[in-house]
Design a protein around this nucleic acid. Structure first.
Lengths: 206, 206
DNA sequence: CGAGACCGTCGACACAGTGTTGATTTTTCT
DNA sequence: AGAAAAATCAACACTGTGTCGACGGTCTCG
């Protein structure tokens, strides 16, 4: 990996030809994932579509797996930016839950394909798994915080806020995973179901 | 595929040498999965360990994917037999939930590896995905039935029993998936958490 | 200007794994 | 025993991967 320090100050926008190619490859990869499964994709498919030779691709990424990691990392970054200031909690638990679920639905609506691919590859590509686990952990913390504010005891153990939050997180993950593979309407349904479930687990009944 | 009509009448127990080989291959496959990931396994690994040539393996299964399907189908069959008469409901909802969760935990304790592999391959191997979906559907029906008996409205829609049952099913799947990859104690914790969550969603508070 | 130093590119190769073929041996049935 | 069916495997063709080394472009500094 060329280690291109993306976030750092670096005389404004000097996108070297190589940087552009790298971006192009990731873009092509994402496009192709809409058509073929990741497993079915070959390095050739990607290189060809990106307009370079297979061997050249290896200059940028040492495998298609690494490319996927880079692409997914970018997506996760986007996700995280969009959820900035989400953990800040001016709202009542009931509202916090509703907006959290809706935001999650929006993320799945926009990035569902990418997230499904990442989840599918989580066990095959450790870096992807780690990235996803880390993202989930952040989400779990947020869920637990809301639950505590709703009155759920914060202690450890199988019925403490953290354990319940973990269960809720995985329920949301899986429910949206399936819904996003289905239809946009299914996503709305999934969101509503998740909202209801989360409310009940938090001990809030309308 | 040799099409060995397994269920059919066929003079009692004539386990031809070929049948035994077939079993042996599946046994070896399961053993190897404890050591290597399914993706990392080669047809050679399996054939060698089973004591035949790679080419001969293709006589029994036309790919390692097909072998996995057969192995998983066998596991699902076992699972289903063990859960016979589970949908019959002499118990009160509260008890039905406790025993259902405990039974599920026991299944994961014994077959966790196989189930994790199957879930991992669900999107890559359609037959495995279909098998798992069908199993989940049966489970969802059972959950929904218990919920209805507990007083949850049976109507369709995002807060009807069926939608909630589906959410609960996926929560259980994912929670046990992670727990079973962790430790036996984690499975016990997971079971208790799932029980509590299910109770609350069903509107039953102790 | 010209000599190095990178950056980027790619043809060509070695290799690993897959799936098939056809000839051959072994098992099974009558 | 002998024919039919079941099972075996060496050898081959093919696909995809990752690496190597040689080549051309461009930027820099003496």
């Amino acid at each position: 990996m060329p280690d291109r320090v993306k976030g750092s100050r670096r005389r404004s926008a000097a996108p070297s030809k190589g940087d552009l190619r790298e971006l192009k490859i990731l873009e092509v990869l994402e496009d192709l994932l809409a058509v073929k499964s990741f497993d079915a994709l070959t390095t050739n498919d990607i290189a060809e579509r990106a307009g370079l030779s297979r061997a050249s691709m290896y200059f940028y990424f040492s495998s298609k797996q690494e490319a996927l990691v880079a692409l997914f990392a970018k997506t996760v970054e986007t996700l995280r930016e969009k959820s900035r200031a989400a953990a800040d909690d001016p709202a009542a638990p009931r509202d916090a839950i509703a907006t959290a679920v809706n935001r999650t639905r929006d993320r799945w609506r926009e990035h569902g394909l990418m997230m499904r691919v990442a989840i599918d590859q989580s066990s095959a590509i450790p870096e992807v798994g780690a990235l996803w686990t880390k993202t989930a952990d952040i989400f779990i913390d947020a869920i637990a915080a809301i639950m505590v504010r709703a009155g759920v005891p914060a202690h450890e153990g199988p019925d403490g806020a953290r354990a319940l939050a973990r269960a809720v997180c995985w329920m949301i993950e899986r429910t949206f995973y399936h819904a996003s593979a289905d239809s946009p309407e299914a996503l709305d349904q999934a969101a509503e179901t998740c909202r209801v479930v989360w409310l009940r687990i938090a001990g809030l009944e309308p």
